[in-house]
């Protein structure tokens, strides 16, 4: 069977990106970005922050109507109240985050002391438990409110994830491998749907480009009837291919987030957001 030119071109990209362990993370960003800019000519880099709406006019129209009265708005207000409410010990989030709520752009980052990728939801719960409060659940629920407030306050900050040393690089490489690994009974990788087939229809869903995927979380999704974190989305996409999902905020998803967010360096945060 003859392969289309597109698939041949893709094979090149998909062949080099995961394989060349020698490529630096900065080179990866370039390859990744070039791939999507070529695949969706005329879409400005910033636009990719809007997921599928950056490339599909039909769904964009209804999305723009939804954004007139954003379904995530009440969450921002509730999140602000959470941020300002004192813990039982009298302290509050600002005791852990002295720079205030506009901090989403600093996450995820490599935490050298802990030897792990530190994400914002994990830092939030570390703050809570250090102050004698129960941790929040990581996928659904009120953590999304707090993250919505922090995200809203951080809007416009530009993603700029660094890979400072060899240990950080190992976590990055781990996340990259996860992204390109086939999984589940259906045998698909993230890159199959969000790179190789991005822009095409899976039944009625247009597959969104991977570029920009991290900037808008938490998202309000009509299908969920509520908000969810990035790791909630990871679970959903793992289950879709009949793979066992990993634990939100476990090492696998944190490293995946580290890789994916690094790929979005240069794109502004637009959290929280709405999706169908």
């Amino acid at each position: 069977m003859k392969q289309s030119l597109l698939i041949t071109a893709l094979l090149g990209i998909l062949g080099t990106l995961p394989m060349t362990a020698q490529a630096t993370p900065a080179e990866d960003v370039q390859t990744y970005r070039d791939f999507f800019m070529k695949r969706f000519p005329g879409v400005p880099l910033e636009e990719f922050a809007n997921g599928v709406y950056s490339i599909d006019q039909v769904s964009r129209d209804s999305w723009e109507a939804i954004e007139e009265f954003p379904p995530y708005e009440p969450s921002i207000e509730d999140g602000e109240a959470m941020w300002n409410k004192a813990f039982a010990n009298g302290k509050s989030y600002s005791s852990c985050f002295p720079d205030g709520p506009a901090i989403m752009g600093k996450y995820p980052h490599w935490d050298d002391g802990k030897g792990m990728v530190m994400t914002l939801p994990l830092a939030v719960n570390n703050c809570r438990t250090a102050n004698g409060e129960k941790p929040l659940k990581y996928a659904k629920g009120s953590i999304n409110k707090l993250l919505s407030y922090i995200g809203y306050e951080s809007r416009g900050q530009v993603t700029n994830v660094g890979i400072p040393n060899a240990a950080a690089l190992a976590a990055y490489e781990d996340g990259k491998q996860f992204y390109f690994a086939r999984r589940g009974q259906l045998n698909m990788s993230c890159s199959h749907c969000h790179m190789q087939q991005s822009g095409r229809h899976l039944r009625t869903d247009v597959l969104s480009p991977a570029l920009g995927h991290t900037t808008g979380f938490p998202v309000y999704r009509s299908k969920w009837g509520g908000q969810g974190t990035l790791h909630r989305r990871y679970k959903g996409c793992n289950k879709q291919v009949r793979a066992k999902p990993f634990k939100p905020q476990g090492e696998e998803y944190r490293n995946l987030e580290y890789f994916m967010t690094h790929m979005n360096n240069g794109i502004a945060i637009n959290s929280p957001s709405a999706r169908k």
Binding site: M1, Q3, I7, L10, L11, L14, Q185, L186, N187, M188, H192, C193, Q196, Q197
Partner: peptide
């Protein structure tokens, strides 16, 4: 036939 195929085996 196509090692990169997204089609489910």
């Amino acid at each position: 036939a196509n090692p990169e195929s997204i089609m489910i085996p």
